[in-house]
Structures are given as C-alpha cells and as structure tokens.
Design a protein around this nucleic acid. Structure first.
Length: 216
DNA sequence: GCGACAG
DNA sequence: ATCTTGTCGC
C-alpha cells in the first residue's frame, strides 16, 4: 500500500515514508546516476529514466514507460501522481542505478516526504530531489556564481538548499531524498550540472519523456 | 479572507 | 505540467 488516490490515506503513507527516511552519508562516489522526469497529455503520462555513468555523464541506458493518469496534481501530493510511473520505469531497467536524481522535492516537503524521498525509500536507493521551484521553506538569494548556495529553512530545520548551478541563472532547489546528506545532494547536483541549469540526467529524461509524449 | 502552492 | 513566436544576448 504505497500508493492511493485518497488524500487522508496519502497523508498516512507520507508520514510512514518520512519515518523510514535515513539521511546517511553516501558510502562512496556513485558509479551511475539516473535522472527521472514525467511528461503529460490530457489523459496519459510518460515517464523517462536516463542512466548515466557518474564520472563522465555518458548515457548507459534509457527507459520509458507510459500509463494513464489516476491522480490529479495537488501541491504536496505529487508522488501519488508521478510516483507509480517512476517506480515501474525503474523496474524495467537492466542497470540498477547507484543514485536517483528526481525532478521534485526530497525532504523539503510539508511532511518530509517529497517524491524523491518517497521513491528513494520505496526502492531503497539513494535519491536526491532537484526542483525548479520551492514547495516549502524560506531562503536567501545565493551569490550569483555557479556553486553558490544557501540553506532552505522550514520550521526551524534545514531541509534543502537553493543552489546556483550556472552563474547568473536562477537557482534550483536541492533536498536530500534518501540515504544521502544535504552536502552529498548538493555535490551530486553540481557534478551533474555542466552547461545547463538542470542536472544532465534530469534534462535528458525531460527531453526523452517529452519526445515520446509528442508521439502519442 | 488572503497568499502560497514540486509538476 | 501544457499551450506557443519571436526575440534578446552570449
């Protein structure tokens, strides 16, 4: 019972996920990293996962999965809309990624269970949330150079960071998902963000899901 | 009531 | 998220 279409049940599940989260340091530098994203049409959703070699970001494997929509987009409950697809897409891979980079929040969530955390706990894989905008928390504008970042605070706790992946470009919101620390999360996101605002794995997954969707 | 609000 | 042309700037 990891998924549901009932809000009160969803809250219960998120609280369980939040209790299971472990923000322990990454053992060693990952060998592979997988980026995930979902694109939509009126009635269907397409999830893409792109696995890359961590060292040089060369693509190792790509996966795509289409399904119908069962849950609407409600702020705070994104995982119940996109999570089921991501879970299935991961199960189709031949490669087992060392870490997941997901388009959304990790613990920077009302109940500490954003989609990156949800998927991380369910799969038992290290995961990092990297969103284009924030869901909760307050932060100060980080300095303009790439690599600069500032804490994202929520209810007196540091739940993530506003990270500048490109000089003079709007920051992305990074938060640990599962089995990583905030520093790990920031380091991984910066490592994967070379010439664009978003980390390469997520960018490629975004392109792939979008291309596929436009063929439906 | 008003503002905020991942994708 | 998605619908969309041109346009400013490196």
């Amino acid at each position: 019972m990891q998924w549901t279409n009932d809000i009160s049940e969803a809250v219960r599940i998120q609280n369980e996920i939040a209790e299971a989260v472990r923000l322990t340091p990454l053992i060693s530098e990952p060998e592979t990293v997988a980026g995930m994203d979902v694109a939509f049409t009126d009635t269907e959703a397409v999830c893409a996962v792109v696995v890359m070699r961590y060292k040089d970001l060369e693509i190792i494997e790509e996966g795509i999965l289409k399904d119908s929509l069962l849950f609407p987009y409600i702020p705070g409950y994104l995982s119940f809309r996109e999570g089921p697809l991501m879970k299935k897409a991961l199960e189709c891979l031949n490669t087992k990624p060392d870490i997941l980079l997901i388009d959304g929040q990790g613990i920077a969530h009302p109940r500490g269970a954003g989609i990156a955390t949800h998927i991380g706990v369910l799969t038992g894989l290290p995961s990092v949330g990297c969103a284009k905008s924030k869901l909760v928390g307050e932060y100060e504008e980080p300095c303009p150079e790439r690599g600069c970042w500032s804490k994202l605070l929520y209810e007196g706790r540091t739940v993530g960071a506003a990270v500048r992946t490109r000089t003079e470009v709007k920051p992305v919101f990074v938060s640990p998902g599962h089995l990583v620390t905030l520093d790990d999360a920031i380091r991984v996101v910066l490592h994967c963000s070379t010439k664009y605002r978003l980390p390469e794995p997520i960018r490629r997954a975004d392109h792939l899901s979008r291309r596929f969707k436009n063929l439906l």
